[in-house]
Simulated assay, not measured.
Amino acid sequence: MSDLHMLVSDEDRERTTKQLQQAFAEGRLTRPELEERIGLALTARTYGDLLGLITDLPAAQAVPAPEDVVELETKNDHVKRSGDWAVPRRLRVVSKYGGVDLDLSEAVIPHPVVEIDLELAYGSAKIVLPEGGTANVDGVRSDWGRVSTGDVPGRPRAGAVHVVITGTAKYGGVSVRYPRKRWFTH
């Protein structure tokens, strides 16, 4: 019997989905391609099924990739990320006079835990989580603003992204919430 017909484990499926998410983060796959391939990966039965999903992608690197940290820095502008964007494992945001809007509700988040480190002098930060996400803000210090999480739980939950927010917002605050519900009238 060929190795391609051997049955795969959940760990094999997970490894393939991580490789697909990495390819999406690198711009090699579109969102519909990612969603289709992940659906097929999660239901794959054999190594041949999984191999067919990744043969057109570069092989995983033999050497470790550089640490997945993105640093966004501005002096006067507003830092904003929303829509379909790839969230790094660690995000550091530095802003002297501007604010920060990070909307994770439609983003691709390949990591179960995302670390966000804020260094804000005069601006505030608003972080919108995907539904069900959780956030720990115990590591945030604000001298003149407030840190609020509303109805967002602070402890991790199985299957949901957990965001750990640290840093300072000297004269501003930090707000963490879920997306606002949109009401449509006919």
Rank of each mutant, 00 (worst) to 15 (best):
A23D: 12
T134F: 04
D101G: 01
Y178Q: 05
G39E: 13
P156R: 13
G48M: 06
V108S: 15
W144L: 13
A158M: 08
H78M: 06
A121D: 02
D77Y: 08
V114R: 02
T166A: 02
L53Y: 12
E14I: 08
W85R: 04
P110H: 02
Y122G: 00
V93W: 07
Y178P: 05
L118F: 10
E73T: 09
A65P: 09
K96A: 14
E73R: 11
V140F: 15
K126G: 07
G39W: 10
P64Q: 15
Q61T: 01
D101A: 09
G39N: 07
T185I: 06
H111L: 02
A135D: 05
G83D: 07
S2A: 14
A23P: 10
P110E: 02
R92I: 03
E35K: 11
G98R: 08
H5I: 00
V176Q: 14
T74N: 12
P153M: 09
S9G: 08
A86V: 03
T16L: 03
V147W: 15
S142Y: 13
A41V: 11
I116K: 06
V79P: 13
V137C: 14
D49M: 03
G139R: 10
R28W: 02
P130I: 10
Y171S: 02
V93I: 15
V140H: 14
A158H: 13
A86H: 12
A44S: 10
K75V: 14
K181W: 15
S9I: 06
R92E: 04
G52K: 11
P88G: 10
P88F: 03
T46I: 01
K96R: 15
A86S: 14
A169F: 05
E71I: 13
E33C: 03
R28V: 00
L50G: 05
L40T: 09
D151W: 14
P88L: 02
Y178L: 01
D49A: 06
L34C: 04
L102D: 01
R90A: 07
R157S: 06
K18N: 01
L91V: 14
Q22E: 08
R182E: 11
R37P: 08
E14V: 10
G83I: 08
Q61N: 08
W144C: 10
L4R: 15
E71T: 15
T30G: 13
G39D: 15
W183T: 03
N76A: 15
E36Y: 09
K96T: 13
E73N: 13
K181C: 00
F184Q: 10
A160F: 06
